[in-house]
Simulated assay, not measured.
Amino acid sequence: MHIYVDADACPVKDEIYKVALRRSVAVTIVSNSPIRIPAHPLLSRIVVGDRFDEADDWIAERADRASVVITNDILLADRCLKAGASVLAPNGKPFTTASIGNAIAVRAIMADLRAGGDVVGGPAPFAKADRSRFLSALDEMLVRLSR
């Protein structure tokens, strides 16, 4: 098993380290700029270039059935699901093959509204409950994959 983190805007990196180290699962933090990570043999960092979607491309190329991908990016989630990976948003909600189509459609509608000048709200602020839900969901996902 391996956890890949779309890390530039990920608010749960510390939680990922905590769960991964307890479960002895390798983690790769992927970002466009250097991000400090704890010194541990299971934790690694990849800094990609600043080309559009370069971090997404790096993760998607490596995602497979033994991977957990942590991202808020719906299009990256779709690519990773198609590769067989398990995908989890930082708020603890899993992306699934059953839910990804709706998420992509809503994303497109919101983009159209913004392009048309409509003022639409963004995601809800990250809350303590999201952090707790994420910890539980990541742990459950790793247990399920280890079977």
Score class of each variant (00 low, 15 high):
V27E: 08
I29D: 13
V30Y: 08
V30N: 12
V30Q: 09
S31W: 04
S31L: 06
S31G: 09
S31F: 07
N32E: 11
S33D: 04
S33W: 07
P34S: 13
I35E: 04
I35Q: 15
I35H: 05
R36W: 02
R36V: 12
I37N: 11
I37A: 06
P38D: 12
A39Y: 07
H40G: 08
H40W: 07
P41M: 07
L42D: 11
L43Y: 06
S44Y: 03
S44D: 14
I46N: 09
I46G: 00
I46W: 03
V47Y: 05
V47T: 15
V48P: 02
D50F: 00
R51E: 14
R51H: 14
R51L: 14
D53T: 13
A55K: 06
A55Q: 03
W58K: 00
W58A: 04
W58Y: 15
A60T: 05
A60Y: 02
E61K: 13
E61G: 03
E61W: 04
R62M: 08
R62S: 12
D64L: 02
D64I: 03
S67K: 08
V69D: 02
V69P: 06
V69I: 12
I70D: 00
D73R: 04
L75I: 01
A77W: 01
A77Y: 03
D78Y: 01
D78P: 00
D78R: 01
R79I: 02
C80L: 05
L81A: 06
L81Q: 05
K82P: 00
A83G: 09
A85Y: 07
A85E: 05
V87T: 07
V87S: 07
V87M: 04
V87G: 01
L88F: 06
A89H: 10
P90T: 09
P90L: 10
P90N: 07
N91C: 06
N91I: 02
G92E: 05
K93S: 13
P94K: 14
F95M: 03
F95E: 01
F95A: 10
F95Q: 01
T96P: 04
T96H: 11
T96K: 02
T97L: 14
T97H: 11
T97C: 08
I100W: 04
I100E: 03
G101W: 00
G101A: 13
A103C: 06
A103G: 00
A103F: 03
A105V: 02
V106G: 00
V106T: 14
V106I: 15
R107E: 06
A108D: 15
I109R: 01
A111F: 01
A111H: 07
A111P: 00
A111C: 00
D112F: 00
D112L: 09
D112H: 11
L113Q: 11
L113W: 07
A115C: 02
A115F: 10
G116H: 12
G117N: 06
D118G: 01
D118I: 04
D118T: 06
V119E: 15
V120L: 11
G121E: 12
